[in-house]
Simulated scan of single mutants.
Amino acid sequence: MEKKKLDRLSELTAISRSRELTAEEKAERQRLRDEYRAAVTGNLKRQLESMTIIEPDGSRIKVSDLKRGGEE
């Protein structure tokens, strides 16, 4: 997420502490929050998928090769 957008999200949060946000500002803040949340979870997912599990017997399993429960 761009620094400009993070700064705007911080600005809207600061404004909300001093006065009620308008409907447009609330919608913008929610959109920015959703974008931030998606960026953070996307980064975390990529980090986890790049990891390797080393089993006690020394074998290695890439996390990205593991199948999640319930997913095909």
Rank of each mutant, 00 (worst) to 15 (best):
R29T: 04
T41H: 01
R68Q: 06
R37H: 10
R31D: 00
Q30T: 13
Q47E: 06
S59I: 11
M51W: 11
A23H: 06
R68W: 02
K67G: 01
G69P: 05
E24T: 09
P56L: 04
G70K: 06
T13H: 14
E72W: 08
R46N: 07
D34V: 03
A14L: 14
E49T: 10
G42C: 02
I54T: 08
G42L: 04
I61T: 11
L48Y: 13
E24D: 12
T41S: 05
A27T: 07
G58N: 13
R46L: 03
D57M: 09
G69A: 12
R17F: 14
G70W: 02
R8E: 08
L32D: 03
E55V: 14
G42N: 08
T13S: 15
D34C: 04
G69T: 10
T41Y: 05
E28S: 09
L48R: 15
R46C: 00
G58R: 14
R33M: 01
E25K: 10
A39N: 07
T41M: 07
E49P: 12
E25A: 13
K67Y: 00
R17A: 14
E11F: 13
K26V: 08
R19S: 09
L44H: 08
T22G: 04
K62A: 07
S10G: 12
S64F: 07
I15D: 09
L12E: 03
E55I: 12
D34T: 03
D34H: 05
E35D: 07
S59D: 14
S10K: 13
E35L: 05
T52N: 02
A23Y: 09
V40M: 10
E71W: 01
N43T: 12
Q30W: 01
G42R: 05
L66N: 06
R33T: 02
L48N: 12
P56Y: 03
E35I: 02
L21E: 08
E20F: 10
E55H: 14
E72N: 14
R37T: 11
K45M: 02
K45N: 07
Q30V: 10
L9C: 11
R37V: 07
T22H: 03
M51V: 12
L12V: 07
A23V: 05
I54R: 04
E49K: 14
I15V: 13
V40I: 11
S16F: 12
E25P: 11
T41N: 04
E24Q: 12
I53R: 00
R60I: 02
R29K: 15
E24S: 11
